[in-house]
Amino acid sequence: MDVTIEYHHIDRFIRCLLSHYDVIAPLAKEDRFIFDRIEDPAAVSPQYDTTLLPPVKWIYPNNEVLLEFDLRDITKAEVIAQGRPQALTFVHPCDINAINLMDEVLAEEPSDANYLTRRRSTVIIGYECLGPCKENHLCFDKGYHIAYKGFDLFFTDIGGRYYVHVATEAGREIVEEDGSFKKAAYDDWVDLMKARAERKKGFKKVIRGDLEMLSHHLKEAYHNEIWDIEGKKCLSCGACVIVCPTCYCFDVSDEICPDMEKGVRTRRWDGCQLRGFCKVASGENFRKDAAERVRHRVFKKEVYLKKRFGRSGCVGCGRCIDYCIAKISIIDIFNHVMDRVRENV
């Protein structure tokens, strides 16, 4: 079932969402956009480029409480796996694809109860970007500029109104409860097709060569000089992995309440680019050079995840490039590897 909603009804629609869900929406903050919980529909800015942190972090939050414990009695520890009903709204296809991959990774047995609980209580409202948001993006190369699943509703701006694809039962309920939606007519569909045809023209490829072969070429380039070159630039700050929508490495730590009786065990985001990530108690560091760590990040996305889940772990959102203060670009790395292959052929 497809419906449409006029621009000026969006406020009412969000107000309706607010009555059932914590609404997480893109909003402007200083010179960037972020996803944040909103109370006021007017704060939402559906037109945004890429948010600083990806929306998946609302399903996989930092400092998430895993357990509550009592220091006096070990048997009183309790699992905390909560999911408040939340709606992630105006989510771009790249970020939806990232959530799809995270679902698969974290549902793989032994599955992650905390993520899955939160994921089950989350509805996702997709929003079609009508062109590339920035230059640094490789979503088009990867085919991740289109999301085929992973949303309950999917909005496309078709001028004056949004075309809304209703994908799930939860989506249907939202649409039916809110009276702002009209059944999509033929003209709406024609406008959708036009918007999509126009959209396609905006994207261009940034990777030279056949991306299908990238994983294979990378494996050949395991000892390539590119890792040392990029490793020398890398400051090991971990920004790239914190902003990545498919990074899920974490560390577990305990915090004790000031009463010295109760405490919580929390999970916080960790990153394979940080110096101590692979350090063990003996002092041995199994990935001590930045070059090895940069290589690991690229391989994890493009080789290891691809092997396990059949598709690349890089959705092409470009955040790791935008936020790298050392100007390391995964596009440049891919192109370097692709060019090197062509030189050798």
């Binding site: 490495c249 974490f250 560390d251 394979c272 692979c278 290891y304």
Partner: peptide, 19 residues
Amino acid sequence: LERRMRCGIGKCGHCQING
């Protein structure tokens, strides 16, 4: 081979060697 196993469920990434 011993690494810094943190979660035990193949998620946290600390004990990953290659794939």
